[in-house]
Design a binder for these strands. Structure first.
Lengths: 315, 315
DNA sequence: ATAAATCCTGTTATCGATAACATCTGAGAT
DNA sequence: ATCTCAGATGTTATCGATAACAGGATTTAT
């Protein structure tokens, strides 16, 4: 492995100068800088992250805390991970995955936390290291999420535009901000159009949803669209409609939310509100690194726009 | 942070002695050892991984290469990751996720590689660092997998036991060892029972499978069970049967393979061959660390038993 | 023209841990 | 009693990089 010393020798300068070229380039003459750059390049030099970590008292490790049960975990976590990992790698940080929420979490430079439930906010606030949450929250902590309200709006607007007469929102029976936001988007668009909101809620399981729709089937007239808060719920809804011999998408429409994996497995494939989870992962990482490099200063929220993906469950 | 020096001072010995207590305990008197242990404990000392990494010329980083397209990636990857991460964490290793298969992979101590396709074996063999594959292979590289042949056998035996008369194997149309092994298990049990194997194959997409079954529906008599190589295929099969008004599980049975996520989303929930992916992850990590600590010595294969999970798609 | 400020680069010490070598102690051999 | 040798512990140098300080050259101010 080529080291700083090798570069220094080749460029006929001291090691310190090379280090400065890397960390404080403004404090070095342009001339010397070029020499050093050449040497670095010709020797294919890459700084040793461990040495750096040692002297800077950094671990170069970011931990991802997944507080949800792994069995409940949605498949989009892989996309999240990819995004985080991609960004961290560029900055020589390593990602460590932590699934048991022990306080004895070991050393690292910061956390990305996902799957927060209400009770978690108690111990979260004790954390001394910088952290960023994945998913909106109402306690003022920095977070990254997609614009859930906009997600609700987009789906609802599209449903109206396509001529469905009855728009029912199918929410997740959970007191979480993302859920409220999605519902709020739906409600707003309904009111703007002089329509009366109608909301049903279910735990986020496809079979539970399927049973609900099946049991109350007579209530749902033709030309109804179900705007669902998740693809799981949409999947259950779709299945219930089909077993009740409703036709999709003409008599009944279904719109999901999330667009990772499940929407593709459904039949017909789901029209859904897509979240770019990879991108959100990248943003989480970027935000956290900023925090680490700026004395744990609050970064506020970071929200990205969801997109409508049109497939087979809407006319 | 408490360091080696703090412990040394408290125990009234030199730093080196403390280091030895940790790394070469046999070279230290029992008496001194106890003193040091006490000091370490009372100061809650944990060695600094970065300093160690530096002096040992180790990065303490393991990279997980995911060679498949993320869009194709099965949801069980999260379980794999959890298992790997758990094991690595215990040994102060960090996990880094790499999804683009660039040769410029940066520094680490070893790789866990998954999603290998045939063409990948060309560049894999150039790797100088230790690596372990997740998923069986025919080139003699160390790997961890579940016993795919046994998986095929278990499903088939159960199907026979439950009294299904026609046992059709639904394979993935892919020239991969895991697929051959699963089919081999099926074939063996069929022959042992004097039954004639019947295999159909499809790409691993639920809708493609669904279409196939639907188109050839008249071929499938009652009392048939479909033993599938994946839960995706099982899901498509199940859907086709239901839309054709076949009854599950009485007239038709379906058995999946993998048991992560999809089996739960199906309706009825799938009887399936479960792989303990978390455990396999742990084993991958354990194996790799052994390799790293033993001069990259070959470790052979490591295969764990799959289990039958009985749910609603078999009688 | 000379003192003071500025800029650039090199030297030294340090981060925390460990290998290699040095030193010291006491048991056993002669 | 002296010598040798093994075993236990301490000392020094090192891993690769960087901060703090030091020193030399150049510029600015009076």
């Amino acid at each position: 492995m080529t080291t700083l010393k090798d570069v220094a020798d080749q460029a006929h300068v001291s090691r310190m100068t090379v280090s400065r070229v890397i960390n404080h380039p403004d404090k070095v003459t342009e001339e010397v800088k070029q020499l050093v750059y050449q040497a670095m390049h010709s020797l294919n030099y890459h700084p040793n992250a461990m040495a750096r970590a040692l002297v800077n008292n950094r671990t170069q490790i970011i931990k991802l805390l997944v507080l949800e049960e792994m069995t409940t975990v949605e498949p989009y976590y892989m996309n999240l991970l990819t995004g985080i990992s991609k960004e961290l790698e560029e900055h020589q940080y390593a990602l460590q995955l932590v699934t048991e929420n022990s306080f004895e979490i070991g050393t690292c430079d910061g956390y990305i936390i996902t799957g927060m439930r209400d009770e978690d906010y108690q111990w979260i606030k004790e954390l001394k290291l910088p952290f960023v949450l994945f998913g909106e929250n109402r306690y003022g902590y920095d977070f990254v999420d997609s614009d859930n309200k906009m997600g609700g709006q987009i789906g609802t607007r599209y449903a109206i535009q396509r001529g469905y007469k009855h728009l029912i929102y199918v929410g997740i029976d959970l007191a979480e901000p993302f859920e409220y936001s999605r519902e709020a988007g739906y409600i707003q668009v309904m009111q703007e159009n002089g329509l009366e909101p109608q909301i049903i809620r279910s735990t986020n399981h496809s079979t539970q949803m399927q049973n609900y729709i099946t049991e109350h089937w007579e209530k749902f007239e033709e030309n109804t669209v179900f705007i669902c808060a998740s693809d799981r719920l949409a999947l259950g809804t779709e299945r219930a409609i089909l077993t009740q011999k409703g036709s999709i998408p003409d008599q009944y429409g279904v719109i999901g939310h999330d667009s990772v994996f499940l929407d593709q497995v459904a039949f017909p494939k789901l029209t859904t509100i897509k979240q770019e989870v990879d991108k959100m992962g990248e943003l989480c990482a970027k935000m956290l690194l900023d925090k680490i490099n700026n004395g744990n200063q609050a970064q506020g929220k970071c929200v990205i726009d969801p997109q409508l993906v049109i497939r087979g469950t809407t006319k």
